[in-house]
């Protein structure tokens, strides 16, 4: 069981190529970290995995549990078990968190979830993420603080129980306490049940959620791969040594 990205070339709807052949394989039960400086293409990869119509795949494919989903609509990908926590979650005025969660949960089911069962699962997950009950009555992300939005993303993940989750900079904008809560949440959901791709600039979150694999992206390509020690190396030295090495190899 895996999420596999093969030789992915992606361009924007204006025809500019951003990803120049990305390969990545995430098995269920694994945690991967994708790191890279601003503008290197991390969010583009996450959005393309989810099927954002702004991006076009010109070469390569995305395979989930053996099925090619490269052409599927975003909702089909979600139902295939793929989830993304957005770097900048959109706000949906007029739709409460609870209502939205119920609709999303039901979208993946044949029979709608029973009200009591939904309430129970929601409460459990809110406890897990230390979210106050009032929160669910508010309109989704509308007027939420940066940290609240990130928690709401993880709450959605907890409710939807995806097989593969891409967390796009869920750690940025969180204070230390919130970071711990969110990390605990991810760890609790992780187990053998989920394959996770954590996109981040900082190694901070990697102290709480331990990846087995670290990938470094630069200018639309994955240029280095390694274990947890690669994360620590980046923490100490930054991206410059890697960039210099890549440029040296190129010339």
């Amino acid at each position: 069981m895996s999420l596999e990205i093969q030789n992915l070339h992606v361009q924007t709807d204006e025809g500019v190529e951003i990803l120049h052949g990305v390969d990545l394989k995430i098995n269920k039960g694994e945690i991967h970290a994708l790191m890279g400086p601003n503008g290197s293409g991390k969010s583009t990869l996450a959005n393309t995995i989810m099927g954002n119509p702004t991006y076009e795949i010109t070469e390569g494919k995305i395979i989930v549990n053996g099925d090619d989903i490269s052409e599927a609509d975003p909702d089909e990908r979600a139902r295939a078990g793929v989830f993304m926590a957005f770097q900048y979650p959109a706000s949906i005025p007029g739709v409460s968190v609870a209502n939205f969660l119920r609709m999303a949960v039901n979208a993946g089911r044949e029979e709608p979830i029973k009200v009591l069962e939904f309430g129970k699962v929601l409460r459990e997950n809110m406890d897990l993420l230390r979210i106050k009950p009032e929160f669910t009555k508010r309109y989704l992300n509308d007027g939420f603080s940066g940290g609240e939005k990130k928690r709401a993303e993880i709450l959605q993940m907890a409710m939807l129980r995806p097989e593969f989750a891409v967390l796009d900079e869920t750690d940025s904008g969180l204070d230390v306490d919130a970071l711990r809560v969110v990390s605990d949440g991810v760890n609790a959901l992780q187990g053998e049940e989920m394959g996770t791709l954590i996109i981040t600039h900082y190694t901070r979150i990697l102290n709480y959620v331990e990846p087995q694999f670290v990938h470094v992206m630069l200018d639309g390509r994955i240029v280095r791969e390694g274990g947890p020690e690669l994360g620590r190396e980046l923490e100490d030295l930054g991206y410059d040594p890697i960039r210099e090495e890549v440029e040296a190899n190129a010339s």
Partner: peptide, 24 residues
């Protein structure tokens, strides 16, 4: 797009958005 990534179809997303727009 955001709503579709949560499994809702385009038509459902539209209905929810317009209803949400009017709800206040």
């Amino acid at each position: 797009f955001y709503m579709q990534t949560r499994g809702l179809t385009r038509a459902e997303a539209m209905r929810i958005l317009v209803e949400g727009y009017f709800e206040p």
